[in-house]
Design a protein around this nucleic acid. Structure first.
Lengths: 138, 138
DNA sequence: GAGATCTCCTAGTAAAATACTATGAATTAA
DNA sequence: TTAATTCATAGTATTTTACTAGGAGATCTC
């Protein structure tokens, strides 16, 4: 079980924005250098973050990104969901071959994974981007 | 972020053992059929579970596995650790190229992943195999 | 003691997911 | 008009995961 870099990069980049985009938009080139993340990969992540209205963009020279809402109104769960870093302990969704919801008998541990999902998600739900940049975590 | 089948299979197999191996050892063939897990894959998992003294084996005909300790004394964390399904939100361990602990400046979200690890592990630490088979989770 | 049923052990491999690269068009400030 | 930037899509290398293959060794039952 691991968190992939996608989710980590997204959170780090958003934290970077929260810290540096107060006056002016911040370019992905900047973030790429500061956080040591491939530019092209960042671009892909930011398209998703924009679609979910977590950031807004300004094109052209001197352009870049800013937060769409203040850091106090962005949950970590918003970020993870935006980049498709879902917590999925089970692959019993649309997959017709694997998983267990297409069998007569539900897998006996099914409810355990549900609980685990809830437990993990509660962390992302309760933590705000603001908490992260202030290093104030519960 | 996802839990791989390795961890899930291990927990399901242990739950199966807890339910069926009270009188007699249970063979992996049985578990394989009941839980729909490849026999050879189960064998690999059980070698690890045995090394960590979570199960004991009886070879030969009518052999199989039983729990080494009662289900009330086995934490889910024991099982996950045994099959190497560690929770690792970061790859900053021995990897010299990636990660962040070999840089001068620690990645600013480092402490977040630590907190997350703790949060997830607390779930596995507090849940016993017994709770699972009794469907009694907090 | 032969045969069946098991665990034990190691290598190899197919498939899936991940992380990243490449390329170029569109937009805009200076 | 040029440089800097976002936007968009396709392709690929790497890594991880999940599984298969093929046997050797142990032990019960007949």
């Amino acid at each position: 079980m691991k968190l992939t870099t996608k989710g980590r990069y997204a959170v780090m980049a958003m934290a970077d924005l929260a810290s540096f985009s107060k006056e002016r938009p911040v370019s992905l080139t900047e973030i790429s250098l500061r956080q040591n993340i491939s530019l092209s990969y960042l671009e892909q992540l930011f398209i998703k973050l924009k679609q979910k209205k977590l950031v807004k963009s300004m094109r052209g020279s001197q352009g870049g990104y800013t937060l769409e809402r203040p850091a106090s109104q962005i949950k970590l769960s918003n970020i993870f969901i935006a980049v498709d870093e879902e917590v999925r302990t089970l692959n019993c969704k649309k997959d017709s071959k694997k998983g267990c919801n297409n069998k007569l008998i539900k897998c006996n541990a099914h409810f355990l994974w549900d609980k685990l999902d809830q437990h993990i998600n509660s962390f992302f739900e309760k933590t705000l981007l603001e908490d992260l940049i202030n290093k104030r975590l519960k």
